[in-house]
Design a protein around this nucleic acid. Sequence first.
DNA 1: CCGAATTGATTAGTTATCTATCTAACAGGA
DNA 2: TCCTGTTAGATAGATAACTAATCAATTCGG
Lengths: 175, 175
Amino acid sequence: MAAKKAPEQNAHFYDNPMNSIGYLTRITFRSFSRNLERMTLEFGVSAGQWPFLRALWNEEGMTQRELSRRVAMREPTTVTALNGMERAGFIKRVPSKEDRRKVHIFLTAKGRRLRDKLIPCVSDVNAIAARDLDPADIATLRRVLLKMSDNLAREEAAYLKSHAGVTLPMGSETP
Amino acid sequence: MAAKKAPEQNAHFYDNPMNSIGYLTRITFRSFSRNLERMTLEFGVSAGQWPFLRALWNEEGMTQRELSRRVAMREPTTVTALNGMERAGFIKRVPSKEDRRKVHIFLTAKGRRLRDKLIPCVSDVNAIAARDLDPADIATLRRVLLKMSDNLAREEAAYLKSHAGVTLPMGSETP
DNA sequence: CCGAATTGATTAGTTATCTATCTAACAGGA
DNA sequence: TCCTGTTAGATAGATAACTAATCAATTCGG
């Protein structure tokens, strides 16, 4: 008699979206994001600006690149988000004295004041998400999501490394 | 002596993005999606088309509205995704005989053939995500994400209901 | 049976995010 | 010093997703 296979190995397992981590994280993230934005928009803060504000409440004066790394977004996303936040008067850009390429990001008083309004919003939405769930399971969820995103990021990095130089450094094909 | 508070109740708990379900689902979803798209693009399938294809491999002939519900996207998203898939020759639109508003969606032979190429891609990416994790924890993850997205969807529905008629049905304020 | 409400698909316009590319500024070696 | 490569930020253009509004077809209550 054959050994019982893990369900993941069944050829039809991923026919059902409910089994795929991609589908489950998408629907949870989007629903979370819509709920949060509904609350933060009352203070003029969009879903895209929110993660940058949280990072800045923890630490001001980072460069844009460092900020991008902190919130796990690409640089162009950071540029457009900061443009909007600058227009809204939440942040100011301060060119570096030592290195004229760098720009340091600081909150305005207005941006700093938002913290006490907005942190309760995330707290609320997290509480809604966690309703009727065992805290131990939520702790497991956090740990597993973090590990997965790490696994996936490693894979991306490995792929990029293995394909470095596919866009040839111009002339490298003629020795 | 005071009772030990749950960490979620600490005023600074959500200063750390690692504690927020929103942040964790976002970074996991985006990394998952980038990895998957890298593989599916080789077959001409973008990240946005993929969920619709999976739904159609399971059942053809749904209307666009029903399809939207299945993949958990809004109707306009479905329209643009289907436009692209129609142009690529993956699907065909068939107007309903009984109700001329409705359009039924069917796969072409080309779209049907993609299944055996693409299901292994999701399977691969899920395996990468699951690396070094206890299968029991992954089962917990699936169950908890599903429950959370349900909690959050309920909240959205409750909000919409409580605010129904804010856009007044024209003249309802003059009895 | 007719006008009002509802439904299915679409269009218009916005935001978020990405990749690829560009420019400017810096750093180090010949 | 000058050339080369790297780094920081910005720009261009694409895709994904959303809300709100539109349009046509259907249904339903009086």
